[in-house]
Amino acid sequence: MDHFRLLSFGDHGWGDELLIGLGVTLALAICTLPFAIILSFLVHWAKVSRYRILRSFGMLYTTVFKSLPEILTLLILYYQAQAIIGWLIQSVIPGAHFSISPFVAGMISLSLVISAYGSEVVRAALGAVGNGQFEAAQSLGLSPRIAFIKVILPQLWRHALPGFGNLWIILLKDTSLVSVIALSELTHVAGLAITTTRQPFVFYGLIAVIYVLLVTLSATAQKRLERRVNLGFTRTET
């Protein structure tokens, strides 16, 4: 029953630390998702923009962030942002120190990576809704902004759900990469626990199971949501 003592709460066990790590993992994923979704729309609009410079920027954005390993994006962002902001602060207040928190760095880089894929989900979903809806809304005298919010967005949800659901699962698993810049999320806490207890199989096995459970839970929730939003539509349409 040694393993139970390892995972107990309190001073001797790692149960409470792991629970906090799980909280950080979930917090990171949940905080990143809205930014990633908003960025996906922005990148998509840049790619279909009237202006050539915005279109090329959108293309470059997706190419770069889909080609670079997430961990490289994370490291570059973490160190570069630190260097730039640190330099800016130094020039205003000499001698001041600045460090970007790993949580924020993780949030930014994960949003960048996920939105590169998300822009394609948005494109497909908008295509599925069809341009006719937008034209009809405009012919009724709705402004483009209102037409988007009141007409397109409610219909978009149904088509974007599978894509964004998959991205959520990818995001959930990618949070483990932020352990590399020492954010104390689940994977990092397990690493800490192992350095003192020397039980790598127990701890990595345990967090692997936790991740699998989280993903399974997400997939089940996604399937239920999909069934719900598709009520009243025939199956062939989705």
């Binding site: 483990s176 990469l177 994977t187 790598p200 990595y204 692997a208 699998v212």
Partner: peptide, 21 residues
């Protein structure tokens, strides 16, 4: 479901460090 559900990083740790135990 098992191998898609866990992050690759955790899987690598599990194989490399975990089996080292």
């Amino acid at each position: 479901n098992l191998f898609r559900g866990m992050p690759l990083l955790v899987l690598m740790f599990l194989v490399y460090y975990g089996f080292g135990q």
